[in-house]
Design a protein around this nucleic acid. Structure first.
Lengths: 342, 342
DNA sequence: CTGTTAGCGCGTTCAG
DNA sequence: CTGAACGCGCTAACAG
């Protein structure tokens, strides 16, 4: 409502003096400072951030571009980002791309126009169009959760290959040899990495991979969720001989698969074991059932924001840094030995 | 990087002409339009949103101030808000207050400074300091999920009283007469309303309320979550005669309580029934167990955003509107008849 | 310690 | 159909 000039007039000083009071910059006599502060209080003056940002060329805003804030894995990352950013006086804009590259591009445009200081990006694909755009506008960024084809970027993610390996290895140790893998979109690096880990574990155990047992999700994110896990599970159950275990590349797929299994009258883990990527926050689960490969989501968000803020603070462009976090296998009740041969 | 003037120079026109091309305002000859567009493409020019917003006094941004985006109930609301806002070209800023009135006040200040066009507020308390601030700065807002003491505001929420009534009535119908109620902070209207519904159901059934069976959460939000439900459950279990049912005012409390029950060696629902407010999205639950009073969270977000956008669009301040949505009782396996008298 | 000048990048207003 | 002048609210860079 009221501007810096109104304050200046009321306090009988120049607007510059008011500015200095607001920003605590330069020296000001106690008297004038108090006069100014009184005027500010009287008018209920609040500085217009747009004008400040336009002038100072800094918005103190980060953007977190991810696929779906509804997914607890990303929600937790978001929380980590916000906590770190907030502690440094930065706000965070959240953007849901729904795994759509078009939406991602559109959001990046918006963010560039809004002059955000930096971007945290969970890329919808490993293509580098987005990176090109970010670079063209000299906008600092950190890639989260997924690899890009273009290397040499700051990135924070988990070791999906090793995580998948540990999950499949766990199943193999239990005695499974026919293990199906239900994964996400082919375009996402985590899908590829988890399949790689799956294959390595099989190879190490001398198990010949059966092509019919590795399925990619198709989706269209908004329609996917459980549906894909459900139909993929139905597909692998139709293969003979039937697999004795399913490795799901994320929680949603696992839940969809569980539904398919129940409908098929199969018990978990007696008839079939299930292991998934990503755990659910403990608060939302009464009694955890799924054996999972957990990723430290909050930590990912925290570290990514740290890295980005560090970049913003330091004047010189340093070497890109990759932070690769370990996963943790949490063995619970959904995995057990395969049923005795019939 | 490049400004409107750079484009103008390259195209050999004035910046005003470029502005008209960007905004599709006024008449422009096909030729110049094409020249300008070529220049824009060549420079990779993107308009500076800060400057536009400063000039036009509109940011096309809404803020959603809530207590915790990590809570699935609010996450779903957020998604509803974002979908509606996005469809009208608005961005959304999310702000987590962690149930702290101080954080809320701080965020509102930030939002005022950033000149957001409107605010969707899940108030941390029913006190009206926040409303005063919003009004003083003529910032349109809609209150979500909770009542404020000050009436006469736009609001969208569920009927907590009726929802609680239906839950407790369900328990009474099953034969329960000693029903404990574990609720949230006293300062939150939903706590009060749910207790009112609880009491009405008891009164109607001629059951004398036992003061020892109604507990308020203390918290400090970040530390609360399950912990409070856990300890509150322990407290009511110590009361003799022991209650045969627990009504939890939200999911987190319910889960904490479930943990306490399990540790106490009590089976649900054989030894004790549990009913909670708020459902979990179906995608994250393998087999829903809790009987719940579900709120249409996505709908709440959608309607609130609709209402706010309507206010922004219409020039005249209309009468405040209250949208009160019904809840839905979903009976599942956590509730059953009380154990036979020992 | 304080004020003046200038301009961030854009769009409104009014002339042509 | 196009352009010039001006100002949104604030602060950097100089005075003094």
């Amino acid at each position: 409502m009221s501007t810096i000039n109104d304050v200046a007039r009321l306090a009988g000083v120049s607007s510059m003096t008011v500015s200095r009071v607001i920003n605590n910059s330069g020296y000001i006599s106690r008297q004038t400072r108090e006069r100014v502060e009184r005027a500010i209080a009287e008018l209920g003056y609040m500085p217009n951030a747009l004008a400040r940002q336009l002038r100072s060329k800094r918005t103190k805003t980060l953007a977190l571009v991810l696929t779906d804030i509804t997914n607890p894995f990303f929600t937790t990352i978001a929380r980590g980002v916000e906590d770190v950013a907030g502690a440094s006086g930065f706000s965070v804009m959240f953007c849901n791309t729904d795994e759509s590259e078009a939406d991602e591009a559109e959001y990046l445009q918006l963010l560039i126009q809004r002059q955000v200081d930096g971007v945290l990006l969970v890329p919808a694909s490993s293509a580098s169009d987005s990176l090109r755009m970010l670079r063209a506008h000299k906008l600092p960024f950190v890639v989260i959760d997924r690899r890009m084809r273009a290397s040499h970027v700051d990135e924070v993610r988990c070791d999906s290959e090793a995580g998948a390996y540990s999950a499949v290895r766990h199943l193999i140790d239990l005695g499974h040899r026919r293990i199906a893998m239900l994964t996400g979109r082919k375009a996402i690096s985590t899908s590829a990495d988890r399949i790689a880990g799956y294959r390595r574990a099989l190879a190490e155990a001398g198990i010949e991979p059966d092509r019919r047992l590795t399925l990619y999700g198709s989706f269209n994110y908004r329609e996917f969720n459980q549906a894909d896990g459900y139909s993929m599970a139905q597909q692998v159950l139709a293969v003979t001989p039937r697999p004795t275990a399913i490795f799901a590349a994320n929680n949603f797929i696992a839940f969809g698969a569980m539904r398919a299994l129940r409908e098929a009258g199969l018990r978990v883990p007696e008839d079939l074991s299930v292991v998934a990527f990503d755990d659910l926050p403990g608060e939302w689960v009464i009694e955890p059932f799924l054996t999972v490969v957990a990723q430290p989501a909050y930590e990912i968000g925290r570290l990514a924001a740290d890295l980005l803020l560090e970049r913003l603070a330091s004047p010189k462009p340093a070497e890109p840094r990759a932070v690769i976090l370990p996963t943790e296998l949490r063995v619970r009740r959904s995995s057990g030995p395969p049923p005795a041969e019939g």
